[in-house]
Design a protein around this nucleic acid. Structure first.
Lengths: 224, 224, 224, 224
DNA sequence: AATGAATGAGACTTCATTCAT
DNA sequence: CATGAATGAAGTCTCATTCAT
C-alpha cells in the first residue's frame, strides 16, 4: 500500500534524516488517515500521528503549521484522490452514458477509495461538518460536480430509453444517498460486504430505473 | 422542545436546587445532544455540556461518573427513542405489510427523530464506531431488529404481489443504506430537504420494487 | 470486634434511623480507622469513610464539622485508648517496678492496641506529623507521660539491683525506640510476627540491662 | 545540598531551557522529597512539586507519566541511595565483622541518609505501604539484604566471642527495629537528637549483647 | 530539514462541604 | 437526626505548539 512504502523500514539501522517537502507531507497525511481510522477524530493527537509517521513532533508543525491545517489537508487529499479516480475513468472518450455512469459507480467503490480506513475518515469529517464549515465546503464541491454529471448522464439515458416517468435529478440524489449509505454499511459491518456486493446493489437499483439499459442480477443472500 | 422546558429560566431569581435523578440525567443528555450537534464530538467538553444544561461541573460526574459514560448514555437514549418511535407505529395491530413498512419509514424521518441536531449526533457516533466498539454494538442492535422486520415485510409483499425476481434481503439492505444516505443529505445540505422529500424518495424506490403496492409519485425538482 | 457491633447489620431489612450522638461518632471513628488502614491517609475520602460507616455524607459533617477534625478525633481516640490501656494495668496498686514495666510493655502489644489496622493509622499520623503540628502534639503528650514513668521505674530497678552503669533515661528512650520499631515490623511484615515475639524481644533487651530482674528467654528463630 | 545546586537561580535573567533527561528527573525527585517532607504525602500535589523544582506542570508528566510513578521513583531513589551508602562502607575488604557492623550502623545514620527530610519521606511511604503493595515491595528488598548480612555478621561475632546464648537472628531483628524506632524519634522530636546520640544508643545495645567486642559508653543525659 | 524537551492552557475528574428536604 | 443532590475549587493529566539545538 502506498503509505507503507513511504514509512521508513523500522528494522533498517538508519533512516534518511532528510526528505523532500512533498514526501514528508504525504507521510504525515497517510499517518493522519491511519490514526483517524484507528482512534477516531477525537482520539487523534499530534503525538500519535507523528509517531505513526515515525517523525518528530516538531516536523508536523513545520510542514502543516497547525493540527487543524493538517486535518484539512488530509481531507483535501482524500477529496482529490476521489475526484481523480472517477474523473479518469469518466473522461475516457467515446464511452456511452451507461458505461460512464458505471465508471463513476466503480470509482466510488474502488478499493483505493472505499476501503474501511478511508471511509472511517470520511465519516469523521462528515460528522464534524456541522461544527466546521470548512469540511462541508470541501466535501460539497466534489459532490456537486459528480452529481451534476450524474444528472446529465441520466438525462441521456432517459432520452435513449424513453423512460418518460423518470426524474433525472431525483435519481441522481437517490444514487448519492445510496453511495453514502452503502459506505456506512462498510464502516459499520466490517468484513460483511465486498465492493461487488455494493456495486451490485447499485446496479439493481439502476436496473429498476433504466430496465432497458441495466439487467437485474440474479438473487443472492445480500451479504456477499 | 423537551430540553427547553427543563432548562430553568435564567432570568428567574431562583432555580430549584434539587431535582430527581431522572430529570437531571435527561437534562444532561439533552445538553449533550445540543453540544455535539453544535461543536462536534471532538469539540464537546464537559464544561460546555454542563453550562448548556445550566448545571455545575461536578453534577455530571455525580450522575454519569465519566464523560465517556455520558456519551454512551446519550447514544443509548437516541437509540431507544428511535426504537420506540417505529415500534409504536409498527405494532398497531391489523396493519397491512405495506402500511407497516411505511410506518417504519415515517418513523425514521419523524421530526422528533430525524432533525438535523440528532442526525449530527448519530453520525458523530458512527464515525467513532471504529475506535469505540461500544458505539457500534449499540447501533447494531437497533438496526438489526428493524432490518429483520423489514425483510419479513418484504417477504409478505412479495407473496402478495408475486414479485418473483425480488430478493427481500437485498431490498432491506438497500433501504437501510438509503435511510442513512438520506440522513447524511439532511446533515450536509441543511435547509434543502424536507422530510417529505426524503420519504418520497424512499417511496419512489419502493414503487420500482413493488409496483403493485406503491405508486411512483409525480415529478419534482428533487429539492423539495 | 468493637466497631463491628456498631455497624448496622446490612442484611437486616431496616436499620435504626436515629442513634445517639456518641454511637454515631464512634461509628464514624471506627470507619475512619478501617479506611486509613485500607487506603492510606491520602486515599481516605469522606465518601469512603461514610460508606464504610453505612451513613450518609452529610452526617459526618454534622458530627465532626470537617474532615480534618474527624481525623484528629480519630487520632485522639487511639491515643486515649492506648493511654487507658497501660494506665489501667499500671495503676494496679502493690505492683513491683518490674511488674509495672512489663505491664506497660504488655499494654503496648495488646491486641486491642497493636493490631495491624491501628498501627497503620498510627504511622499515617506519624508520617504527617511534620506537616501537621496538631498530630505531633497529640502523640507527644501520651508518649511523654509514659516515658517519664518508664524512667522512674528504671531508676527504681537500678536502685533495687545496683546496676551502676545503667542510665535510666537512655534505657527509656531505647525502649520507646524499640516499641515503635517493632510496631513498624508488624506493619511491614504482616503475619510474620506475633505479639509474643515482640514482647519477648523487649524482654530480651531488659534481661541484658537488668539481668537480676529479667531472664533471657531461650533461643527461637526470631520469626515466631 | 544537591538539589539546591540544580535549582536555577530565580534572580538570574535566564535559566537554561533544556537539560538532559537525567538532570530533570533528579530535579523533580529532589523537589518531591522536599515537598513530602514539608506538606506530607497527602498534601503533596504536582503543582507544589513542579513549582518547587521551578519547572512547568507538563514536564513532570513528560518525564514521569503519572504522579504515582514519580512517587515510586522517588522512593526507589531513596532506597538505592541508602543501599549504596552502606554497601560502599561494608564492602571495604579486610574489615573485621565488628567494623562491618558499625559501618552499616553509621551508614544508617549518615547525614545524607538520615536527615529529617528524608526520614519524613520514608515514613510517609511506610504508612502507605498497607495501601500500596509497590511501596512495601521496594522497602522490603533493601531491608532483607541488609538484615541477612547483619545476621551473618552477628554469627561471626558469636563465633569470635563465644556468646553462647545469643541468637543472631533475634539480634538482627532487634537492631532493625531500633534503627526504625530511632529514626522515628528524629522525625518526631526534631532538634533533640544528634546522629551521634542515635549511634551511641545502638552501640550501647551492642555492648550489652557482645560485651567483648563493644564498650558501653559513659553516661549521658540521653538527649545529646 | 529535523529533533524532542519544554510550556501552559484547558480538559476531565475528585472531593470536602453545603443545604433543601 | 438524617439524607443525598449539588456545588465549585483544586487536583491530575493531556496535548497543540514553541524553540534551542
Amino acid at each position: 500500500m502506498n503509505q507503507e512504502q513511504l514509512k521508513p523500514d523500522k528494522t533498517s539501522p538508519k533512516k534518511p534524516r532528510t526528505a523532500s517537502k512533498e514526501v514528508r507531507r504525504q507521510q504525515l497525511i497517510n499517518a493522519t488517515i491511519d490514526t483517524i481510522a484507528k482512534h477516531g477524530l477525537a482520539g487523534t493527537t499530534m503525538t500519535i500521528v507523528t509517531r505513526a509517521a515515525d517523525l518528530s513532533a516538531g516536523l508536523a508543525n513545520f510542514h502543516f503549521r497547525t493540527k487543524q491545517n493538517l486535518l484539512e489537508e488530509t481531507l483535501r487529499f482524500l477529496a482529490e484522490e476521489h475526484h481523480n479516480q472517477w474523473k479518469k475513468s469518466y473522461e475516457k472518450a467515446n464511452l456511452a452514458p451507461k458505461a460512464k455512469l458505471l465508471a463513476i459507480v466503480a470509482a466510488h467503490f474502488h478499493p483505493k477509495i472505499s476501503n474501511r480506513k478511508k471511509i472511517a475518515v470520511w465519516f469523521s469529517f462528515f460528522a464534524e461538518s456541522t461544527a466546521r464549515a470548512a469540511y462541508r465546503k470541501l466535501a460539497d464541491e466534489i459532490d456537486a460536480e459528480r452529481r451534476n454529471l450524474t444528472v446529465e448522464l441520466c438525462r441521456q439515458l432517459i432520452d435513449e430509453g424513453g423512460y418518460e416517468d423518470v426524474d433525472p435529478v431525483n435519481v441522481a440524489f437517490t444514487l448519492e444517498g445510496l453511495y453514502d449509505g452503502l459506505w456506512l454499511n462498510i464502516l459499520m459491518y466490517p468484513g460483511e460486504f465486498s465492493r461487488f456486493d455494493m456495486m451490485k446493489r447499485i446496479e439493481d437499483y439502476l436496473a429498476l430505473v433504466f430496465p432497458k439499459h441495466f439487467q437485474c442480477s440474479p438473487h443472492s443472500n445480500g451479504k456477499g
